[in-house]
Amino acid sequence: MIDPNTAQRFQAMAAPHLDAAYNLARWLTRNPADADDVVQDAYLRAFRYFDGFRGGDGRAWLLAIVRNTCYSWLRRNRSEQATMEYDDEIASLQSMSDPAELAMHVSDPAQLLLRASNQQQLEAALLQLPTEQREILVLRELEDLSYKEIAGITGLPIGTVMSRLSRARLQLRRCFEAMSTTS
């Protein structure tokens, strides 16, 4: 039997974070129907684990479950992409690893901003990023979470959160530059 009080407490805690949960799932799965399924699955899982929730930041606790559900879902359904595990070291070799160099890498700031301010182009560029980079950017810029909170949700060390974030930003600029040269 499920205690109705538990159900009520869960609803009160979880319902206000549904938008955040859906937004994250939508950006990770890149598809509304899949985001729907993932969030529903994650919320039911969260309810089953709710006894283990010791209070505190409900949003972080839920987002961690949504994130894990997303990744299991991605592994199951997109095996061809997910067989390549994201590797921070390889990613740092592929991009310029030095953030100082990163900051200097400016081609045409005005052009870049023009593209970033165009919703379609911005969305397209974000969707091109590797999932692991897109995730950090979404948590940072759309959910307005601190490095520490992101580290808590993703289970990554803060240093890794910072380096992924800077690579994500660099990669985003490159996407905009690629758009500039092709269009």
């Binding site: 499920i2 109705p4 159900a7 009520q8 869960f10 609803q11 009160a12 319902a15 549904l18 938008d19 949960a21 859906y22 937004n23 939508r26 950006w27 509304p32 985001a35 729907d36 969030v39 529903q40 919320y43 039911l44 309810f47 901003l113 970033a116 301010s117 165009n118 919703q119 911005l122 969305e123 974000l126 950017l137 810029e141 759309l142 985003l172």
Partner: peptide
């Protein structure tokens, strides 16, 4: 600030909200 202003924020559809409310034990 361009990302914060222009990147779409996907709110949960009402249908999902209702479905979850129904799927979770009565509250």
């Amino acid at each position: 600030s361009a990302i914060r202003t222009h990147a779409p924020y996907h709110r949960a559809p009402e249908a999902l909200r209702a479905r979850l409310h129904a799927a979770l034990p009565a509250a």
